[in-house]
Every structure is written in C-alpha cells, then in structure tokens.
Simulated assay, not measured.
Amino acid sequence: MTDLQSILPEEKGGMHPIIIAGPCSAETEEQVLSTARELARNGVKIFRAGIWKPRTKPGGFEGVGREGLPWLAKVKEETGMLTATEVATRQHVEDALAAGVDILWIGARTSANPFAMQEIADALQEAGKDVPVLVKNPVNPDLELWIGALQRLYNAGIHRLGAIHRGFSAYGKHLYRNMPQWHIPIELRRRFPNLTLVCDPSHIGGKRELVAPLSQQALDMGFDGLIIESHCDPDCAWSDKAQQVTPEVLNFILNTLVLRDATVTTESLTLLRQQIDELDNELLEVLNKRMRVSREIGQYKKEHRMPVLQIGRHDEIMQSRARLAEEMGMSGEFMRNVLSAIHEESVRQQIEIFNDRTR
C-alpha cells in the first residue's frame, strides 16, 4: 500500500487536523439537521452520523436504516459539508453510495471479520466509485487483522484509505471505555506512513470529559485528524449519550487544542535525541548481559534436572521491580510489561539450552 492517497477531495485536502463530527446515530431529520447546522457554523467540514448501528445485544436501537440517508443528503445540500456513515454489509455500501454519501467507515466489529471485509471490498469494487474508506481497528488488539482489513480494500482498488483508532476492548472496569494501546496505531503509521490516521476519542474514552485530553494526546503523536461524536442534545441521545458533546463544547475543545509543528527540529532537540540513542545502546548492552546470565542459569537448571519456569521467583521479580519503578516515577504497569517481555525471551533461550543435546 505505497500509493495511498488523501481521503479528502483535493480542494479540502489542506485541512489539518481533519475533523469529522456528528451524532453517534442519526435519530430524526430534525436532530441531524440541527446538529449539522451548528457544526457547520463552527467550521466543521465533514459530518458523521450512524445510519445502521451494530449493537451488542438485540432489542436496542439499531439505527433508522436507509430512511436516514436522505437526511445526510440534505445536510450536504444545506451546509456544503461532506457526509460520512458506517457500513457493514454489501447492501449498506450500495445504499450509501446511491444516496451520495462521501466517506464510508467500517466499524470495529466488522473490521475483525475477514468475510465481512471481503464482501464490502467486493461491493466497492463492483460499484467502481472512488470513495474514501476509513477502517476502525478491530475490537481486539490485533495489528495484522487491522492491516488485513485495509489490504482487502486496497486490493479492490480503493486507495483513498484511512485508519481510525478507537481503542481496544478489555474485560473489567477501566478509566477508558476502550484501552488506547497507542503503540499499535503508532506501529501501523510506521509501516504505512502515507496512511491517513484518525483518532476516535469518543469511543476510546467513553465519557465526554475525556474527549479533550485524548484528542490532544492523539495530535501530539502525529495523528492526521479526529472523529468526534457531537449531538445537539447529548443527554437525550438514543445511543452512547455519555461520550457525546454538544457542537458548542466541541468548538471549545477544537479551539483549545495545541497543534505541533512536526517539521521543526532544533539543535537542542537533536542533542537530546543523541542522548536517547546512546541510552538505547546501553540498554541493549545491559539486556545482552542479562540474557548471558539467563543462559548460564538455564545450563545449571538442565544439569540439575530443574524445570525452566520458576513461578515463585518470577512473581517476586515482577512485584518488586514494579514497586521500584513506581518509586522512580514510572508506571508499574509499564515495568510489568517490560519484564514480561524480558522473561519470555529468557525462557526461550533457556528452552533452547534444554533442547541442545550438545550441552
């Protein structure tokens, strides 16, 4: 996917950051148009609204369906905004394109399903329209599955592609509705630097008070834009009311965001980066020494018929090192993740020793 293009028409391609805003669901024509008018007055150029809404359990509001597509057409006619909606089936694609929807996005449940993705890719290829498509990350933290969804569309001739980072599902109660796991979209950007990368702070946070800080964090990490849920009366929304903001609040958030200039490199920053490079080299040297000791431990265990895994020792290291990291001002969870990776490599190397009959 080396020849990816901007998701926006040329005359709108200069917008930075890209802002896509609108209600989680299109509920009524009045609600859609009222929200769109306020957003347009505040300078938003792309209006989003869910026409079909996938729900976890049956019986909830699953969107107004194709009945709402003419409402999006009215939004475009009256405000000049581009329109965007989610599609999950061939029929959705056909209906949305027939109604003149400008941008399609694919939800997290759909992007995790290769059969559904191929159906959508085939429908777009048969339609033969140059429509931009944004793909949300799968519900589970699987980068290859995300890339596979994008590649199916690319192979169907859709080169105006973008990715939406909406976070990843996790069991239990957390600060966020979906865990950010920023390293996954960052790795996606590293592999495909020309891919438009958009953050969905509404779905990551799940609470409207988290929209602003998550938006700033995404822009600080070089995201190209934001897709934010905005409703004229969020507390009465038919879906996801807790994470939607009014157009007025959205305007305030957007006006307080700080945009970084990624092209600016100062002499001081260069020197600091040199220090990082040197420290990384030192880290590698220390890790190499640690692995050398681990291999010696593996040899000792082999000679004395001891098992590779020593669970009590592992738990003790994890707990003590995490506490020490917190005392140093680092995250204990970060240190546990680092130690887990180091432990996994140590075990791998010790198993190699166990399997080596020459030792």
Rank of each mutant, 00 (worst) to 15 (best):
N42C: 06
E27L: 01
R37V: 08
P17V: 07
Q31L: 12
A21E: 08
P23G: 09
R37C: 02
E10W: 01
T35M: 06
G14D: 03
L8Q: 09
S34W: 02
N42K: 15
A26M: 04
T28S: 15
G14V: 00
A21T: 07
H16S: 10
T35D: 05
L33S: 06
T35V: 13
L33T: 04
K12P: 01
V32N: 13
I19D: 01
E27D: 09
M15W: 01
L39A: 12
S34M: 07
V32D: 10
P9E: 10
I20N: 00
I7A: 09
L39Y: 15
I18R: 08
K12C: 01
I18M: 06
Q31P: 04
C24A: 12
I20C: 00
A26V: 08
A36R: 10
P9Y: 11
L8K: 09
S25R: 00
I18P: 04
N42L: 13
L39E: 13
A40M: 07
L39G: 14
T35K: 06
K12I: 04
G22M: 05
L39R: 12
M15K: 06
P9D: 13
A21M: 12
L33P: 10
R37N: 12
I18A: 07
I7T: 05
G13K: 13
A21V: 07
I20A: 01
E38D: 13
P17Y: 08
G13Q: 12
E38F: 11
H16W: 04
E10G: 11
M15R: 08
P9M: 09
A26T: 09
I19K: 03
C24H: 03
S25D: 06
L39K: 14
E30D: 09
E29Q: 14
A40W: 03
Q31M: 12
E11Q: 10
I20E: 00
K12F: 07
A26Q: 03
G14A: 05
P17W: 08
G14H: 13
I18G: 08
L33M: 14
I19M: 06
C24M: 01
E29D: 05
C24F: 00
S25I: 01
I19H: 02
K12S: 10
L33K: 07
P23D: 11
I19L: 11
S25G: 04
E38M: 15
R37S: 09
N42R: 11
T35F: 11
I7L: 06
P17H: 08
I18Y: 06
S34C: 09
A40I: 07
E10P: 05
H16Q: 06
C24N: 13
I19T: 05
H16V: 00
V32C: 11
N42G: 15
L33D: 05
G13L: 00
G22E: 05
E27A: 10
E11K: 13
L8F: 07
R37F: 11
I7N: 04
R41F: 08
G14K: 02
V32E: 08
E38S: 15
G22Q: 04
E10C: 00
T35H: 09
E29R: 15
I7Y: 02
K12W: 04
I7K: 04
Q31N: 15
V32S: 10
T28W: 05
S34G: 13
R41E: 15
